[in-house]
Design a protein around this nucleic acid. Sequence first.
RNA 1: CCAGCUGGCCGGGCGGCCGCACCCGCGAAGCCGAAAGGCUGCGGGUGAGGAAAGUCCGGGCUCCAUGGAGACACGGUGCCGGUUAAUGGCCGGCGGGGGCGACCCCAGGGAAAGUGCCACAGAAAGCAAACCGCCAUGGUCUACCGUGGCAAGGGUGAAAGGGUGGGGUAAGAGCCCACCGCGCGACUGGCAACAGGAGCGGCACGGUAAACCCCACCGGGAGCAAGACCGAAUAGGGACGGUGCGAGGGGAAACCCUCGGGGGCUGUUUCCGGCCCACCGUCCGGGUAGGUUGCGUGAGGCGCAUGGCGACAUGCGCCCAAGAUGAAUGGCCGCCACGUUCUCGCUCCGCAAGGAGCGAGGGCCAUACAGAACCCGGCUUACAGGCCAGCUGGCAAU
RNA 2: UCCCGCUUCGUCUAAUGGUAGGACAGCGCCCUUUGAAGGCGUGAAUCGUGGUUCGAGUCCAUGAGCGGGAA
Length: 110
Amino acid sequence: MGPNPKRLLKRAEFLAVRRGEKRRGRLFLVEVLDRGDGLSPRVGYTVTKKVGNAVARNRIRRRLREAVRTHAAGDMEPGNDYVIVGREDVLTIPFGQLKAELSRRLRGTR
RNA sequence: CCAGCUGGCCGGGCGGCCGCACCCGCGAAGCCGAAAGGCUGCGGGUGAGGAAAGUCCGGGCUCCAUGGAGACACGGUGCCGGUUAAUGGCCGGCGGGGGCGACCCCAGGGAAAGUGCCACAGAAAGCAAACCGCCAUGGUCUACCGUGGCAAGGGUGAAAGGGUGGGGUAAGAGCCCACCGCGCGACUGGCAACAGGAGCGGCACGGUAAACCCCACCGGGAGCAAGACCGAAUAGGGACGGUGCGAGGGGAAACCCUCGGGGGCUGUUUCCGGCCCACCGUCCGGGUAGGUUGCGUGAGGCGCAUGGCGACAUGCGCCCAAGAUGAAUGGCCGCCACGUUCUCGCUCCGCAAGGAGCGAGGGCCAUACAGAACCCGGCUUACAGGCCAGCUGGCAAU
RNA sequence: UCCCGCUUCGUCUAAUGGUAGGACAGCGCCCUUUGAAGGCGUGAAUCGUGGUUCGAGUCCAUGAGCGGGAA
């Protein structure tokens, strides 16, 4: 378990990461961009309005954030920016599966 | 006990581990900074709702517009009175409709200011008229036609110009009469809406204003992405100053020195000027990204008393209670309550099928609707489950 | 967070308050050796719930859904 990574907060930063590698999955889409500076990794979360109402969107983002904090932070490469786009299934899947899947995706193994 | 009506309230509890945001405190620990201070650290406190939702109304607040007032246009509201900062909300009353009842529902001003519309059907849809009819009379009096009288009956329609009964008549008709309905209405009660109503009128006035409209009242527009402040990088704007070409010399270079001559355009040439271009430097202003603020003491909450049928008002006391901005208030777990379902046992009712209650054990769910975004007052919509009070109808018992 | 607009057959579109029409697509039949084209026929809709009206796709109220604009 690594330190809790920095957050992406600005729209411009999110748009920049969109140019990077995209890893699609059943639970979420992960976008990765190497900033090239070798500093600590950063992560941002996107949950679109299509997924549900505000309660559902908040819960998806919080579960993803918790999974990153407790388990998957150490799987991030220094110098990378990650954007995790949560899908509807994040709401219902058991937390253990969510952590395993997220960790696998962040390491980039298929 | 069953069925129902109305009003109000709650909308999981306790605990463990790991986290988030803001605020307060502690530092002679570290880093950044000239400083103020900030970041990391430690401790403590606080941290979503009854609808935070929809954005349907009303305000506060901010900016813009506006000399004052009125008229017109446009939009909204629409029984009466009260309440409130204000409302289209709320309270009370009135009128109409529904329900055995508690109670519920209603945009509920004006159709006698005017205009429009009322499809199809029907003779006729708003000036009253007359298709089939009825009656009288005339014609070559069976059947048909003409003239005159009538509007009871038939038929159409959502709606056809009072209803029932009697008198009356050639046939009929408020033509006359009784009752009912309708219209006007002195007067009485009420602040008013409205209610009652002596008397008068043979009946005249169809519906539609959520059609135009008339009347009364209200309304300037936009919205915290309002507005205010600070302000990179890049590009561009303005002001000031300098340089610009050629030759020679020095120097590694930047550059310096000397001489000629001031880059381009222009006023006829010179003097003296003006304008433009490129580069460099300094300064200024607008302003993007970004940041700070607005940003929580408010028509605030709770309790008590008084006035009022009530909405509410007044007084006193206590309390300070979220503040994010790709957006904090979470993740995982344990126990319990409530709920639901299954099994077993006991009791009661029943011929039986089965039903009710109590106890034990197991499973499920561990909650529904839903997340503050400047702030309030309402309305509307969504919602698992539960609690309290009052009232109505029925059954039983006393 | 705020401000606008729109919802009619499967799709695209009409309809002064008076039987919801048309095109394409679908299905059936005819024509053809078969198919296409063509012709004939046929099913299919007013976003939901209330209200006004004799009568509502249209008017009013209130919800739902979809789309757009303001960083």
